[in-house]
Design a protein around this nucleic acid. Sequence first.
DNA 1: CGAGCACTTGATCGCTTTCAATAGCTGTGG
DNA 2: CCACAGCTATTGAAAGCGATCAAGTGCTCG
Lengths: 246, 246
Amino acid sequence: MLKAQFDHTNCSDCPIRHRAVCAHCDADELEELEDIKYYRTFEAGQTIIWSGDQMNFVGSVVSGIASLTQTMEDGRTQMVGLLLPSDFVGRPGREAAPYDVQATTDLVMCCFRKKPFEDLMNTTPHIAHRLLQMTLDELDAAREWMLVLGRKTAREKIASLLSIIARRDASITPKDKPAPIVFDLPLTREAMADYLGLTLETVSRQISALKKDGIIQLEGKRHVTIPDMRRLMEEAGDDSDGGFLV
Amino acid sequence: MLKAQFDHTNCSDCPIRHRAVCAHCDADELEELEDIKYYRTFEAGQTIIWSGDQMNFVGSVVSGIASLTQTMEDGRTQMVGLLLPSDFVGRPGREAAPYDVQATTDLVMCCFRKKPFEDLMNTTPHIAHRLLQMTLDELDAAREWMLVLGRKTAREKIASLLSIIARRDASITPKDKPAPIVFDLPLTREAMADYLGLTLETVSRQISALKKDGIIQLEGKRHVTIPDMRRLMEEAGDDSDGGFLV
DNA sequence: CGAGCACTTGATCGCTTTCAATAGCTGTGG
DNA sequence: CCACAGCTATTGAAAGCGATCAAGTGCTCG
């Protein structure tokens, strides 16, 4: 059981300790957080928060991936955010959720009831400051994505998404080295389509095309190898040096 | 001269006093801001900040409209934000600007050198708190726009943009009343295209189509009348009640 | 073995882009 | 005063890309 594994975790042992909203907290502040935190787990596919719902908690993704999606009345949906471990869920100071939050994979979250967290934010500048930083980063990411959605071709969109997922793993391996990157796609073709503003058929076709052209290699449907990251970035239409922080 | 008109304005007389980053400041805090602020003006078309430039100031739009744009190497450009009076420009805690900032119309900004502003942020929670609020609002707006870019048709995109511009004026007139809304488009067709991820020809065609269908009326190229806001919102694909805050 | 699901592939359609010509407006200079 | 350049915007015709409709594959699980 994933949950049990986290039920009694100390903040100091937490895998996202240094990146999450609590990153800058000192020992005292961490203790206060520890008092009000609790873990929740979600299964892949489960909806964590419905758009319009009252949000009575906020929290951090500890493991797994969650997605934020908006849906139009006729069913068209657009993913507007991808939440990875350490990302923050919820919005202090707002009642209703503006979009659906779904667990894309099995998920563990570290939650805080909203009211106590808001109180804590007002007394511990480190939390408020870190949250501002993280929100600004998310804003940059959202705007980066607007360029993808508005101006890139289907092939470039796929390459961009693969780059983003790969970059996360690339932070482990030395930079700029053309060492192959290997990972498992955490998203179905449909989820990728919803993220990219495409249909799942187009996603499938473009992945096949990138494979045929040797930009990526596929084992099964989800296991991806990128022999040369720079070629992928070229396909994404990004400038090769790509000065990213995320 | 626009600038002269603002050169010696007291914060307490400022038209954006109640909405900008200084909105929650008390008299003392306002005085500190007053000490370090200065006004700058820009002409329509002028670039305020180039992507990649070092940013040595932050500030608020006092009057006029600015736009944030990203450009790919081959020239494709996407507008990623529209800054209206009271909106904040710049990013405390980051060196380089992530995108171009351009004056879409003649513009007046209330600026602060970055370093003193950052110091002030650390000592006056009201400013940091307000900036967090504003950033979260911008994030919501960016995500709202991702749905437009990713999933809406050209016609819906135009209607969405007109709705946003109109809504700003609508905040003056009583809500839900089908009173006509009248405004001047602050954007060229090309700027609209860059915002919507379309070509300027498509923008022009869709505006003509909305006009032919009686959704909007046009006098000249820029002066727009919306006889029934609800019809426009339907064309935009938004649910009619549209729970917006911005 | 068959149902269900995720994915792939093919054929066709249609919306948006692209290329191109034209209109309307403003400002400039002979 | 008119001719003309330069800019914004409109409109038309054709091309192309991604969507749509439709099978079909491969895998897992009962």
